[in-house]
Structure formats: structure tokens, C-alpha cells
Computed example of a mutant assay.
Amino acid sequence: MTQVVTITEAAAFQIKDMMKEHGNENVFLRVGVKGGGCSGLSYGMGFEEEKGDKDLEYEQHGIKILIDDESKPILQDVKIDFKQSMMGGGFTIDNPNAIANCGCGSSFRTATEAGKPEEC
């Protein structure tokens, strides 16, 4: 199985905590990309109960990960981490494919995929 996204140990720990809060630790973590944001593309992460026909599935740190066909090339070699600071914590996404990010950091574009930017 091909690994597309790398999840750090810190991010995996946080995701597993969120799965417990969700009430189901046997769900899939879906990681994807959709059109939107200032730069054209934005990330999405959430839990799903079922795998789709065109989903890539693999496991990391005991987490079952799903990535759809359209998101796969954009997310190749992405690293998801979780950082804690005095202001709280949050996930960080390091995408070597992104060539431009918006000022707020919530959207991006790649050399081959511009997405559909929204008004900021």
C-alpha cells in the first residue's frame, strides 16, 4: 500500500483522542483537499465510517487513513503534525507541493492545481 500522507506521533496521539471523543475508535480518518479559500485549495480532515470505492486506504500509528483519488497527487508527501503552545494546540500541514499559501494559512495552491479561490 502506498503511503501518501505522513502523520507524526504527536498528531496521531491527538487524532486518537478525538476518535475517543467522537465515540468510535474504529472510524477512518479522511484527509482530503477541496476547492476554496483565498489561494484556491483547502485541506479537510474528518472521520468516516465507510470506505469509498475509489479511496486509497492505509494505516499509520494504528489509524486507518482514507484519501480520495483527486486529493492523492496534491497530498503526496504531506506531513501532518500537532503543535502545542501557550495559546493552545492545532494541526500543522507541511505540503511540499504547495507553491503559494494565503496570508491566513488556511488555503494553498500547487503548480498543477489552482482550485477555485474565494473572496477573502
Rank of each mutant, 00 (worst) to 15 (best):
V31M: 15
S107P: 05
E49P: 02
N26L: 11
G46L: 08
G44A: 13
F28T: 02
G62R: 02
D68Y: 09
K83S: 07
K79F: 04
Q76G: 01
D68C: 06
N95M: 08
M18D: 13
N26E: 14
P96E: 14
V78H: 10
N97W: 07
G88M: 06
E48Y: 15
F82C: 01
G40P: 05
I93H: 10
I74A: 08
F108K: 02
F108W: 08
D53Q: 13
K34Q: 12
Q76S: 13
D68H: 02
E70K: 08
A100L: 10
Q14V: 02
D69W: 07
V78I: 11
S39L: 01
G52Y: 11
Q14S: 03
S42K: 12
G103T: 09
L41G: 01
D17C: 11
D77S: 09
H22W: 12
V78A: 14
G103C: 11
G35N: 15
K79T: 13
N97A: 09
I93A: 14
S106R: 05
A98Y: 14
G52F: 10
E50M: 12
I99H: 11
M86P: 00
M19A: 12
A11F: 05
R30T: 06
N101K: 14
A12W: 08
H61Y: 15
S106G: 07
S39K: 08
G89S: 10
I65Y: 09
G105H: 04
V31I: 15
I65W: 05
